[in-house]
Nucleic acid binder design. Structure first.
Lengths: 135, 135
DNA sequence: TTGCGTGCAAAGGTTTTGCATGGCA
DNA sequence: TGCCATGCAAAACCTTTGCACGCAA
């Protein structure tokens, strides 16, 4: 029902090598030791996502990002993400403050936040600096 | 610096007529009394979003949705929003906890969050209840 | 051998951009 | 009168799909 292919293995291997980083299809294509067709990458990622080994993020109209979570799916469960609207950098906010916030929202507002989908937009330190200089 | 045009007014009027509903560019184009070029709609929405009168949502690869928040845009400056992925309800989170979080992120992580763009996704109280019953 | 996976190219859809024209101030 | 905004079409972009071929089981 599901074949093991050279391409599939190479893809998983690459994703695993990236740890919990978020990578786009373009980055994947560029980072693979041997060229794999774009369509294949998408198809493989779909399957991996369906099996829960990979998580898909769809940001601000920008290309989707994928993250390997096979070995420890809980890895990114606990933290939120910041995305810089200026340079596009995605920042993992591993911070107890966020956990506290989640709890607060759940307890006080009855709303269970989903860190997988939630991204806070704003401006990162780098770009704030540039902005200040530019002025 | 910014001209008033017939198209711009028509667009705002339409958005306002939709209340807090989320509408796609396609829906807007179809709903307008007089045809406006797609490019113009996008450009106008960009400007409105930049001024904070309109909020842009980008879902799962689907076309982006826009929501008019003009008249109480300033009320929305200070707080974040929660959006229920199940029923689509948009919740204004007026809570000092969020302000504290913003400050924390700015001070500790050097990142300035933008409440106008940032939406936390998750499940609202109503839908959590339904979910629990369904199980 | 069977039929899924691959690769290429083409199609699909949304959003952006270039350029001449029209309309606001 | 200046200059921004518009419209159209074309481009750019990411992603999906069709089809023939190759390869895993």
């Amino acid at each position: 029902m599901a074949y093991q292919t050279k391409q599939g293995r190479a893809l998983v291997e690459y994703l695993r090598s990236q740890g919990s980083r978020h990578v786009s299809v373009q980055q994947i294509a560029a980072g693979l030791p041997e060229k794999i067709g774009t369509a294949t990458i998408y198809r493989q990622l779909d399957k991996l996502a369906a099996r829960g080994l990979v998580r898909k993020y769809v940001g601000d109209g920008d290309p989707a990002c994928y993250q390997y979570v096979g070995d420890d799916a809980k890895n990114c469960m606990q933290h939120f993400h910041l995305k810089c609207v200026s340079c596009g950098e995605l920042i993992h906010l591993e911070c107890e403050e966020m956990g506290r916030l989640s709890e607060h929202i759940l307890r006080e507002h009855g709303f269970r936040t989903d860190p997988l989908r939630s991204v806070l937009y704003g401006t990162c330190a780098e770009c704030l600096k540039k902005e200040a200089e530019g002025q």
